[in-house]
Write a protein that binds this DNA or RNA. Structure first.
Lengths: 256, 256
DNA sequence: AAGTGGTCTAGACCACCGG
DNA sequence: CGGTGGTCTAGACCACTTA
C-alpha cells in the first residue's frame, strides 16, 4: 500500500509509451471477470467470490472491483443480492425466463403457454445463416422449427439455427422431455449462456404453410422477428426467425 | 451563474426513526437535480454546474453527486463530456436526432428524408388518447398527421396527439418553417423535453386510405407502432401511432 | 495553467441475510 | 453474530479541454 500508485503487478495503465490503448484498471478487471465467466469458472446461478476476495485476488481496492461488477450487473451478466453475494445470471429463474420475449398480451392477463417442436435436424448451414453465426459455408447446424401456443392459440412460429459443433445431440425428444425454456436448456445441457440479442422486425404476409400452422388466413399480417443471440465474447450462437401473430398480443419496447 | 440562492439543506439520510422510507443520499440528490431539470433551471444543451459546485450546494461529497449524475447520464438525461462539463441532453444534435426512431434501412445506405404535414388541428381528445395522456375526457389536444419519406418513397405515416394546453399555437405552417425534427421543435418552442418512450408494436393490413398515402396495395402488411413519450416526471406528453412500411426497412432492437 | 470529468484508494459505517 | 453488498467520505492523481 504505499501512496500514490499501486506497487502491485496489477500494472498501472501504461500511459506512457506511444501505445494508443489506455484502459482503466476496472475495465481490465471487468475483462478478467468476463474471461472467468466465459471459461465457466463460475456457473450460471452460482455466486462469484465476494468483492473483498476479488480485490485481494487482483490486488486492487474493493472500489475498483465494485465498479467492474457494477458494469457487468448493468449488462445483466451478474446479479447482485445485498447480504447474499453476487451471482452469475441464469435463464432458469421465474422472473427472467422470458427475458428475451417481448411479446405481451394486449390485456394484461397471463396465459398458459405450450411449446411444440415440429422439426429438428442437422443440416448444412445455408449461406445467410452461416454468415450470421460466423460459420464457414456449409458447416453443420441444428435446424429446428417449433410452435408456441398460448391457451391453445398458436401464436409464434419459430425457425431456429444453432452451430452444430456446439449443440451436438440436441433432439426434439430431449426438448420435450426437459420442459424448460430453450435458453435454460442451452445453459444446463450445453453450457451456452445467452447474454445479449439483436432483433430486426418487419411486417409480412403469412404464406400458405405458415397460415395453416398458425390457423389463420393466408396473407394475414404477421410480425417477422429475426434474432441473433450472443454468448460471452459477443460470439453469435443462435439465429431465430419468428413469426408472431399479433391479434391479441403486441411487441413491447422501451426507448430511452 | 447564479450566486447563492440555494434554499438547500443538506440532510444526512434519516436512518434512525422507524420510518419505512429510506433512500440513499445520492438518490435524494438525483431527485433534486431532476427537479431543477424539470423546472428548467438548466436548458437542454447547456452545462449544469460542476460536480464540485453541486457538492458544495448540496453539502455532500463529490462522490455522492457523481453517483447521482451517473444515473442521470445512464438514463440519457445528462451527457458527460470529459474536460468540458456535464450537459443537459437535447434532441438538437446530429447524433441523437433520430434517437427514438428505430427504423433502419435493410442495407446500411443512408437516405435523405423529408417530412410532410398532412393535417394539424385542435380537437377534443378521444377517450383512449385522453387516458394515455392523463387528460380529462374531451380536453383539447393537437392532432396531426404527417408522412415521412425516404428518397421520395413514402415510408412512415404518423398520427400524433399532444396536450392542447401545452402545445398552444402549434401549426402545420410553423412545423414546415422550422425544419427541425419534432422533438427538437418541442424543446425549443414549447420547453418540452422528451426523455423516454414506450412502444407497442403489431403487424396490420393497410386500409384503403393508408395504402393510398403510402402508395402501396390495400391489405399490404405494415408495422403499427404506438408510442407514448414522457417528459421529466414520467408525465406523458405525446401519443403517436405510426404505420411503417417495411419493404426495405426494419425495426431494430437490442435485448439484454 | 486552470478547470472539468475520470480513476483509484482507504476506511467508516449501514442494510440485509443467514446461521 | 459474521459476512455480504450498499453508501458516503476525503484525498490524490490522471486525462481531456480551453485559453
Amino acid at each position: 500500500m504505499s501512496e500514490s500508485t499501486h506497487p502491485d503487478r496489477g500494472h498501472v495503465p501504461d500511459r506512457s509509451a506511444g501505445s494508443a490503448a489506455f484502459s482503466p484498471l476496472y475495465q481490465q478487471i471487468k475483462g478478467l471477470l468476463l474471461q472467468s465467466l466465459d471459461r465457466g469458472e463460475w456457473k450460471p446461478g452460482e455466486a462469484i467470490p465476494s468483492e473483498l476476495d476479488l480485490a485481494a485476488r487482483f490486488q486492487v481496492s474493493q472500489g475498483t472491483v465494485r465498479k467492474a461488477i457494477d458494469e457487468l450487473a448493468a449488462d445483466n451478466l451478474l446479479v447482485r443480492r445485498q447480504g447474499k453475494g453476487t451471482f452469475v445470471a441464469t435463464h432458469h429463474e421465474a422472473n427472467v425466463r422470458f427475458r428475451f420475449l417481448r411479446l405481451t398480451p394486449d390485456d394484461a392477463r397471463q396465459r398458459g403457454s405450450a411449446s411444440q417442436v415440429l422439426d429438428c435436424r442437422r443440416v448444412k448451414a445455408p449461406a445467410d445463416i452461416a454468415a450470421l453465426l460466423d460459420l464457414r459455408n456449409g458447416e453443420a447446424v441444428v435446424s429446428l422449427r417449433r410452435l408456441l401456443s398460448f391457451e391453445d392459440t398458436p401464436t409464434i412460429l419459430d425457425d431456429i439455427w444453432l452451430p452444430g459443433a456446439v449443440f451436438k445431440g440436441l433432439t426434439a425428444e430431449s426438448m420435450q422431455r426437459l420442459r424448460s425454456p430453450l435458453y435454460a436448456l442451452f445453459e444446463s445441457e450445453f453450457g451456452v449462456s445467452m447474454v445479449r440479442a439483436d432483433e430486426k422486425i418487419k411486417a409480412v404476409a403469412a404464406s400458405d404453410e405458415q397460415a395453416q400452422l398458425l390457423r389463420i388466413e393466408p396473407g394475414a399480417p404477421l410480425l417477422r422477428v429475426e434474432r441473433v443471440s450472443y454468448t460471452y465474447g459477443d460470439r453469435p450462437m443462435e439465429v431465430r426467425r419468428g413469426l408472431y401473430l399479433t391479434e391479441q398480443f403486441h411487441y413491447r419496447n422501451s426507448l430511452n
